[in-house]
Nucleic acid binder design. Structure first.
Length: 677
RNA sequence: GCACCCGUAGCUCAGAUGGAUAGAGCGUUUGACUACGAAUCAAAAGGUCGGAGGUUCGAGUCCUCCCGGGUGCACCA
């Protein structure tokens, strides 16, 4: 029995006893970890709750300690399955009910559970329900290279996907490609009017860049910055932008073709960047298809049919179709209404977003056509939406029709996301607001020092700021590939120092794994609503609370097991089960071993917690904590040289449980453990 | 002006559902490699949890007000 199951069993039992004995119905039974392992493994502050209830109903004042004392005896009475797993229950503090597990029994259970780790996968498949969850993340404008801000989005989204999948959920990963927006138009203006290039010239440029080892998205990054400057210098260029944007949206012309080439090239670059971090997608949903396949028109009809939008005939929004959002307060009557169709008949961004969200949730009676965009090394395919129907040998997966959609978008878009959510709820009350979840996070900004390191000249006012927002238009930002390159170089130097004997290829592979670990952990350790003020020193750190720290801990754990004999773990499990008395004596004496075991057993509830809060940082903190605890254990005990057979077995089983949890936790963050480092 | 987020150690951050002595990392000081790997470990110093009220057995956490910082609030995307 796992600790989580035991905990739930206890909850149920306490609920029954409390109802029987005190006539009190508790809504929920809270359980928490005592501050110190000497105080027990699980604490129930339930007596306080009961005292409160009694006072509320009868006015009678009862002492929580006394209530706890009463409960203590009753909980285990006649409960054989609980008695086997629980050593004792104590009343502590002002009335806590502290539960002490039977340590050897739990160790044997944990060893068994990890024995059956393989069956976990089959169990997960069993838990695969019909419920389908969509996670949309990355969604970088395809007009330039990705920067660290985009990485935060992608790493958060990808880790969340891994968490959901580990719970056996059916997940679809989408990456929205805004290939017909102003940002792409800007770069197209740059190519056409600053560079005087046509499509062929761009293709030539692309080839030349490849030969020089330069990347297309970096070129676009610089060009985009130049366009931004040119707009300010030349008024006339703004008209060109409007022309270009219109042509791109329209489609079927030379400008649109050029734009498609540029956008698609950038998408390939961005996908390659993300692949370096182990981030992949199922579907690239493009805005061009949302336009050309008339998703908006269908959504518009549907909203009119369901009477959820309104045509304004007077007031400042006259001539527009608006989504009334009455729950918002506003002094003027229609102040908070959101315009979806402008008076000139064109649709706003929010309108398109609602149509896309409707499709994701299966509320639109239309579908895209699909073709394969890219095949990863291991054969996994990314699909992309297209307008034309394509014949493929491959069976197209069923995209869309999700039950729940998580949109990973930074917090600056909270308001439009709120509009989308509420609009969906208006269109489909059955789906309601719970179907659309904005997984929001704060931006990654630059410290003034970091901006200067990147070669930017700051004004006196900017130097005083706590952070400076990154800006694609200004070219101000840390490019993702640059950062990964820096990390790989630094890691390689460290590997070189320690393992000069390895082949160049091995060293490089290890350096890559370390770089990914450092970067992904760095982006995950902050909670979502913390602004990450990017600092090179912190991002490049391999010490302290870092991915490297966790990896190192796992590497050392693995190296113990590499040195053990073939069947040593199995034998240790056997010994631990047979020698319960001696095992008990060891575990009861050595709290640090027991503490590590308890922590390692909490991965599953940590995952549940992280998913419920949609907060991957919960997992990162857990992982670091587990690594720290393992290091302590590693420092305190010699495993291989331990002479006492039972002690040795206990140490082996504990180390094994801990390292498996650690490796699993790391893999959920997309972090691998190298053989050596 | 309105809405949302933040304010915790010198710095960067954890503290979900109110619970026992508010925790990490970095930095500082001191100590530990003849060891299953020192990318590590041990120890010390460091706090009126922005301020003031309130709710209650109990508040960093909930409520009100104030101060300070951030982000949104387009017929832009």
């Amino acid at each position: 029995m796992k600790p989580l199951q035991l905990q739930n069993l206890l909850r149920k039992r306490i609920f029954e006893v409390v109802a029987e004995r005190f006539g009190v119905q508790l809504e929920q039974i809270q359980a928490e970890s005592p501050p110190n392992i000497k105080l027990g493994d699980l604490a129930f502050p339930v007596a306080f709750e009961i005292a409160k209830k009694i006072k509320q109903t009868s006015g009678e004042k009862r002492n929580p300690r006394e209530i706890a004392e009463n409960l203590k005896a009753l909980i285990l009475d006649g409960e054989t399955s609980l008695n086997e797993r629980i050593e004792r229950i104590e009343v502590a503090g002002a009335g806590y009910l502290n539960v002490f597990y039977n340590r050897p029994a739990m160790l044997a259970d944990l060893a068994r559970d990890f024995d059956a780790l393989q069956s976990l996968e089959t169990e997960q498949k069993r838990r695969l329900t019909a419920e389908k969850i969509c996670v949309e993340h990355t969604s970088v404008n395809p007009n330039k290279a990705a920067h660290v801000g985009h990485l935060r989005n992608a790493v958060l989204g990808d880790t969340f996907v891994r968490l959901l999948k580990s719970q056996g959920k059916n997940v679809e990963v989408q990456n929205y490609i805004d290939n017909t927006g102003v940002q792409v138009a800007d770069v197209v203006v740059g190519f056409m009017h600053l560079e005087k290039m046509d499509l062929n010239a761009i293709i030539e440029l692309d080839k030349r860049l490849a030969e020089e080892g330069k990347s297309f998205d970096y070129y676009c990054w610089d060009l985009y910055t130049r366009v931004g400057q040119a707009y300010q210098a030349e008024e006339s260029l703004n008209e060109k932008r409007a022309e270009v944007l219109h042509a791109i949206e329209e489609g079927g012309n030379e400008i649109a073709e050029l734009a498609d080439y540029v956008a698609t090239r950038n998408v390939r670059c961005i996908l390659a960047t993300m692949e370096r971090l182990g981030i992949r997608y199922d579907l690239l949903a493009r805005e061009s298809e949302i336009l050309h396949l008339k998703f908006w028109q269908r959504a518009f009809e549907e909203m009119k049919r369901r009477n959820v939008i309104r045509y304004e005939t007077e007031g400042k929004n006259a001539g527009c179709w608006v989504m009334p959002l009455d729950a918002h307060e506003g002094t003027e009557e229609h102040d908070t209404d959101k315009i979806l169709v402008r008076s000139n008949g064109t649709v706003t961004y929010t309108g398109k977003d609602i149509a896309y969200q409707m499709w994701k949730l299966g509320l639109l009676d239309l579908d895209f056509n699909y073709e394969i965009f890219h095949t990863y090394d291991d054969g996994k395919k990314v699909w992309v939406t297209t307008s034309k129907s394509v014949e493929t040998d491959e069976e197209t997966p069923h995209f869309g029709k999700n039950d729940i959609v998580y949109n990973v978008i930074d917090s600056r878009q909270s308001y439009p996301q709120e509009v989308v959510k509420r609009s969906i709820a208006a269109i489909s009350p059955e789906k309601g607001e719970r179907a659309s979840i904005h997984l929001s996070y704060e931006m990654v900004a630059l410290s003034p020092a970091a901006a200067e390191e990147l070669g930017f000249v700051l004004s006196e006012e900017e130097k005083k700021r706590t952070f400076i927002e990154m800006s694609g238009r200004k070219g101000l930002g840390v490019k993702a590939d640059d950062l990964i390159n820096l990390l790989e170089e630094k890691a390689l130097a460290e590997v070189e120092k320690r393992h000069a004997d390895l082949t160049a290829e091995e060293k490089k592979r290890i350096a890559k794994t370390i770089a990914v670990g450092a970067l992904r952990y760095f982006l995950l350790k902050y909670t979502r609503n913390t602004v990450v003020v990017f600092d090179f020193k912190e991002a490049l750190s391999f010490d302290g609370e870092s991915g490297v720290f966790c990896q190192y801990s796992a590497v050392r754990a693995n190296s113990i097991f590499r040195k053990l004999e073939q069947n040593e773990v199995e034998k240790a499990v056997q010994i631990v089960r047979e020698e319960q008395e001696k095992t008990a004596e060891i575990l009861n004496r050595e709290d640090d071993i027991w503490a590590l075991l308890m922590l390692a057993s909490k991965l599953e509830e940590t995952i549940d917690n992280a998913v419920n809060l949609a907060e991957p940082a919960v997992l990162a903190k857990y992982c670091f904590n587990l690594a720290r605890n393992f290091n302590l254990f590693y420092h305190n005990h010699r495993i291989i040289s331990e002479q006492d057979a039972v002690k040795r077995a206990v140490l082996i089983v504990t180390a094994d449980v801990a390292r498996r949890s650690l490796i699993k936790a790391l893999s959920l963050m997309g972090i691998e453990v190298p053989e050596r480092m």
